[in-house]
Design a protein around this nucleic acid. Structure first.
Lengths: 109, 109
DNA sequence: TAAATATATGAAAAATTATTCATATCATGA
DNA sequence: TCATGATATGAATAATTTTTCATATATTTA
């Protein structure tokens, strides 16, 4: 069953448009990590990390390798680097306040 | 106020991880369009189109030009093309069923 | 200026997604 | 094999986001 471009994109982007999952990806940029390390780094519950690893894995952003009882997760391919680069370029060029969008900002106050 | 990479990415990706907004972007790939045209093409309410145009505008994915009572929206820069290309590459390479992720698929049945 | 058309907006309701808790699984070493 | 440590998972709740409806605003033309 083939799917249109924007539908494929939706599956794809909905997986990465989440602060926890993005933080996981950002941390994995530095190298493979197991669940406990991610849990500690992101200061979140372990179950939350696991729940968030799953969609990343399912859509091929990361891969996993077992070592004993631990599981090491690492980035799969260059997709994440490419994406982050596109975002950085875009935000530098078009977003007046470096990715801080006005209305989100108001919300925060 | 500077913000970390993954936070910038979150603002950015949360804007495009929506089927309506992606469909708008996909259609604008072919050229500028006004709200009525988008409304008809996407078969959605006009208010929904307007509501969804706003975040796209706010984050610089699109720009707008007034002509009489109409407003023509068009893509801003190459960000969208770049993003779509990254997704296509990724899904061809890593997603077994061309962007159709197993668990989303199950959900649909 | 009144009517008509195009678009935007606020607020409520509906839908989706994230988070937590409790517990299950699974591999290891005593 | 039992205890331990690491990770995963299901289900309930909480939080966020989308969608709709009603209506406002703005521009043009009669």
């Amino acid at each position: 069953m083939k799917r249109g471009l924007s539908q494929t994109c939706y599956v794809f982007f909905s997986v990465i448009s989440n602060p926890t999952r993005l933080a996981i990806l950002e941390n994995l940029l530095r190298g493979p990590m197991n669940v406990s390390q991610l849990t500690e780094l992101l200061k979140q519950r372990q179950s939350m990390i696991s729940h968030n690893l799953r969609p990343l894995l399912r859509c091929g952003f990361i891969k996993v390798e077992r070592r004993g009882k631990e599981r090491f997760y690492s980035l799969n391919g260059e997709t994440v680097e490419h994406l982050f680069r596109v975002v950085e370029n875009h935000s530098q060029k078009y977003c007046p306040t470096m990715g801080v969008c006005p209305s989100k900002e108001e919300k925060r106050r």
